[in-house]
Design a protein around this nucleic acid. Structure first.
Length: 928
RNA sequence: GCCCAGGUGGCGGAAUUGGUAGACGCGCUGGACUUAAAAUCCAGUGACCAUUAUGGUCGUGCGGGUUCAAGUCCCGCCCUGGGUACCA
């Protein structure tokens, strides 16, 4: 029989489906292994060839682990809420649920064709009410908890109420909003219920507060920091502005320290951990209070360098700071207001591109330096950000380049307070920039003079704490996650409002299902789309929240739901969670490094705190697959004509390169007839050929519809089969590296599979295996391959395993080996990579069960042991000839034998060697 | 600017711990089989020099260094990709 991949692949895909070959359950007799892919957003464009790269890798690993005796959980689902379906709904009126349903259907078809070993019974989608019930449930739990900094964990809000009743908030150390009043237990008891709820809201892990948000007018919604890039929305590329709004936020900042420290436990790449470290951004320093002269006001600042306090010559407030109004004197009111208006007008983008220009405005106020008692002018400037620290800084122009530029611009004094080792202080008037102050000795700095920087920092903090003018503090860059979106297609908040305060929907009433609306647009009043829903109120007539949750809500705990996807009573049962624990291997793209991967670690830690899950980190090992780039093709049109000239002749003409669909190009040769039909514009095109062919140019670019370089996996599967696609994607290069997709090389992999097929067949294409005992050299090939494949899979080097399979097939073909004792184990070895062809041949071999239930062959060293080794002999490091020597030869003997060799004589030219280096089983090097 | 990857033939890439640079595949060239094509198989394929067969020189982004030995380690630089930023 011929290798008919089409029949074979459909046959086995329906077999796996019917027999539920990959269904998984709790099996305590086997060790568990959980392999997870980052689930896709089902877009309208379907999968292109780049998407399945990670899925193929994780599928190979899953199948390998199964063969190794593990009970493998390997699920797939859909991140089904999202903007594109909603944008489409706005344009066409089609309900996003329908769009999403259609897209999922297409995704599933495409995924099925690739032959993944997913347990499809666990499939989930985040837009399913049975699923988002649990997203809402977790939100309610967040609402009902606060973070105790003393115990370093989340605790029920009722504990907090008890504390307030006993002590007020005087002894409390909690993560909370900054606008706080100190109150005693008596105060607390005297507060109205309304007031009590207001105060509690400042402590909840999910809280409602006025926040400065990234508002995208075009999308009509707010965006999280990681959804904005360079002042534009990541999705859609629309401008984003800063705006103050009442929004739900999640108090992820409470977990900053734990999120940072626990990175150490994870088997993630160093670069990914580094991205997270930077995102969390821990800095140690001090908080200090500066009193404002002649006013009842003070400025609180954060600095990492309290030691440089003697070098402070002015203070700067963020224009958005509440303090601005308070400190500005009458004289400067107008100017200050003008400056504020100016900054508001400037978009984030302008502020960024304009980083070199200095701007600011004096407020008329002076702050008193608590260490020197000097008076310092207070400015406002947009280089100080409200979102970081306290929105106010002490400026040290001598040692900070932004402060320096500001000082020069406004003619403010510059004082040097740190001198580098071995250098002398210089006149700051001659400086062109601030100078580095990470190391050195203090000068002009009162009682810390002559101390090293580190000592000086310590001493200053000690001093300000004693004097009560400040204290040591750790600051994080990580901001609380804004959790409201003014959109339709997301999880509704399980929240209703009573007297302007939020209350959670009772858990037994979840899910709170997304209501129908007549249009997916804001209301006339500017409310989110849910404002259009009829009777969007609870049974007592209280209105529900109108915003919905953001994209990362549904993906923050989905890995837990897969463990127990149909549980009606819990996100995941204790039993299922105890068994599956955490994700052993997580594969996905780096684009989620700061978004999803931070949020889900945070959710998981919260769920760990409240006892829902047994592990405090969700993803033990994580691998980022590289991007598959597109390989575009070009044709060259002679300007002003419909004539196209082949690549190497284009220099002779005045031409415009035009992207051409890569699907009508093969090995860079254009199918000219297909080209004419591709676009009516080219119907009458004529061509200047070279060697009778039209050769296209190429470039590596992003894979994108607009560049006509998108390759669809369905097309590849139709032409070569899924097994070829799977192996070729792996063969392309190392998993973690980005690389261009070039269909040209795929023949090689396909040829390999046909060659492999022929190993099991005679000249007449009849299945033919012999039961003779394999010869030593045949067993050697097999065991060499077992070792190589196993090592490669363990270190995710799938490209080299494909090579190893090719080498193996070449060698067995050479040996004309048709022996069951060699070929049957080889089938098992190959099955994770090419599951269809191996199932078929496995069945031919007389097996009645799926090859997925086979056992990975055991490597036996004795078959690959050699008695000799062919040593490369080099002279001064240059390889000159080879000599075969016994494996257990001693260095002295080896040296003698090598030097006796005629080639050695030639290279020695009569001289005697200065030194001979003999490395067993490696090399001989002769130094002359 | 800072942080992290990466730079090896015409192309994708291999070299796992410092030990034969270019495995494997594509492409290309030539050949076998065939009426022919497809498929398959065989040989060659880093550059340059030499050619009588054996050969020789150079070569892993650039410049230096360590070492018996460097694609791999160290120092300095260039380029590409990604992340991040008026972060105090």
């Amino acid at each position: 029989m011929e290798y008919n991949f089409r029949d074979i692949e459909t046959k086995w895909q329906s077999y796996w489906d019917k027999n539920k070959t990959y269904k998984t359950g709790i099996e305590t007799s086997k060790p568990k292994y959980y392999v997870l892919d980052m689930f896709p957003y089902p877009s309208g464009a379907g999968l292109h060839v780049g998407h399945p790269l990670g899925y193929i890798a994780s599928d190979i690993y899953s199948r390998y682990k199964r063969l190794k005796g593990f009970n493998v959980l390997h699920p797939m689902g859909y991140d089904a809420f999202g903007l594109p379906a909603e944008q489409y709904a706005i344009q066409t009126g089609q309900h996003p649920a329908i769009t999403t349903e259609n897209n999922i259907k297409r995704y599933k078809e495409q995924l099925t064709k690739i032959g993944f070993s997913f347990d499809w019974d666990r499939e989930l989608r985040t837009s399913d009410p049975e699923y988002y019930k649990w997203t809402q449930w977790v939100f309610v739990e967040l609402f009902e908890h606060w973070y105790n900094n003393k115990s370093q964990k989340a605790e029920p809000i009722i504990n907090l109420v008890n504390i307030f009743e006993k002590d007020g908030n005087t002894k409390l150390n909690a993560a909370c909003n900054t606008v706080l009043v100190v109150f005693s237990s008596e105060d607390w008891k005297s507060f109205s219920d309304h007031r009590k709820q207001e105060i509690l809201l400042d402590y909840r892990l999910a809280y409602l507060a006025d926040t400065l948000v990234n508002w995208c007018p075009e999308l009509g919604t707010v965006l999280a920091n990681d959804e904005v890039k360079e002042g534009f929305s990541v999705r859609g590329g629309f401008p984003v502005v800063q705006k103050e709004m009442k929004q739900w936020s999640l108090r992820i900042s409470a977990y900053a320290e734990r999120l940072l420290n626990d990175l150490e436990k994870l088997e993630w790449t160093d670069s990914l951990k580094e991205i997270q470290r930077n995102w969390i951004g821990r800095s140690e320093g001090a908080e200090m209070i500066f009193k404002i002269k002649d006013m009842d006001a003070e400025m609180e600042i954060f600095t990492t360098r309290p030691d440089t306090s003697w070098g402070v010559t002015f203070m700067v407030l963020a224009p958005e700071s509440d303090l601005v109004n308070k400190v500005t004197t009458q004289e400067y009111k107008d100017d200050v207001q003008k400056y504020i208006d100016l900054t508001k007008k400037r978009s984030e983008r302008e502020r960024m591109t304009d980083a070199k220009n200095v701007s600011g405005q004096f407020t008329g106020a002076y702050a008193i330096n608590p260490l020197t008692n000097n008076e310092m002018p207070v400015y406002i400037s947009d280089y100080v950000l409200m979102g970081y620290g306290t929105g106010a800084i002490m400026a040290v122009p001598g040692h900070d380049s932004r402060d320096f530029k500001f000082a020069r611009h406004f003619n403010l004094p510059v004082i040097q307070v740190v001198v580098k080792k071995g250098e002398e202080p210089t006149d700051t008037a001659t400086w062109e920039d601030s100078c580095d102050s990470k190391e050195g000795k203090m000068i002009n700095s009162g009682f810390i003079n002559n101390l090293d920087v580190n000592e000086a920092i310590e001493k200053t903090i000690q001093f300000i704490e004693e004097k009560g003018i400040g204290k040591g503090r750790i600051n994080f860059r990580l901001r609380d996650a804004i959790f409201s979106r003014q959109r339709y297609w997301g999880e509704p908040f399980p929240i209703y409002f009573k007297d302007g305060l939020p209350y959670p929907v009772a858990k037994e009433n979840l899910p709170l299902e997304l209501p129908e609306v007549d249009a997916y647009l804001p209301t006339e009043k500017g409310e989110p789309p849910l404002g259009r829903a009829k009777s969007w109120k609870n049974e007592d007539g209280y209105p529900y929240e109108l915003s919905t949750m953001p994209g990362f809500a549904g993906s923050s705990a989905y890995y837990l739901r897969y463990m127990d996807p149909n549980n009606k009573n819990a996100l995941v049962s204790e039993e299922a969670n105890e068994y599956w624990q955490d994700v052993d291997l997580y594969i996905g793209g780096t684009e989620h490094a700061t978004g999803h991967l931070v949020y889900s670690r945070f959710w998981n830690k919260f769920l760990f705190d409240i006892g829902w899950v047994s592990k405090d980190e969700p993803f033990k090992k994580l691998i980022n697959q590289g991007m598959i780039q597109g390989r575009s093709n070009f044709v060259y049109r002679v300007k002003g004509t419909n004539r196209f000239v082949s690549l190497n002749l284009r220099k002779e003409y005045d031409i415009t390169p035009i992207h051409v669909d890569v699907n009508i190009v093969s090995n860079d040769i254009l199918d000219t007839e297909a080209f004419k039909n591709w676009n009516p514009e080219y119907k009458n095109a004529d061509f200047v050929l070279e060697d009778g062919k039209y050769i296209c140019g190429y470039a590596v670019e992003k894979m994108s519809k607009s560049l006509y370089n998108v390759v669809n996996p369905d097309v590849i599967i139709e032409q070569y089969g899924a097994d070829t696609l799977r192996m070729y994607e792996m063969f392309l290069g190392p998993l973690e590296m980005s690389k261009p997709w070039d269909t040209n090389g795929i023949d090689g992999v396909h040829k390999f599979l046909r060659k492999f097929w022929r190993l099991f067949h005679d000249e007449n294409n009849n299945f033919a295996l012999s039961d003779d005992n394999p010869a030593d050299n045949e067993l050697k090939v097999l065991h060499k391959t077992i070792k190589k494949i196993q090592d490669d899979i363990e270190r995710f080097s799938f490209n080299t395993s494909v090579s190893a399979f090719m080498i193996c097939a070449n060698e067995l073909t050479e040996l004309k080996c048709k022996k069951r004792g060699v070929l049957e184990p080889l089938l098992v070895l190959l099955s994770p990579f090419a599951p269809h062809i191996t199932e078929e041949l496995w069945q031919f071999c007389g097996n009645s069960e799926s090859i997925s239930y086979a056992v990975f062959p055991e490597y036996n060293e004795k078959y690959v042991k050699e008695s000799t080794y062919e040593y490369p002999v080099s002279f001064n490091g240059k390889m000159r000839f080879k000599i075969e020597l016994p494996i257990d030869i001693n260095p002295k003997e080896a040296e003698e034998k090598v030097l006796k060799h005629e080639m050695a004589q030639k290279w020695l030219e009569g001289k005697s060697p200065r030194k001979v280096i003999f490395v067993p089983k490696k090399i001989v090097n002769i130094v002359i």
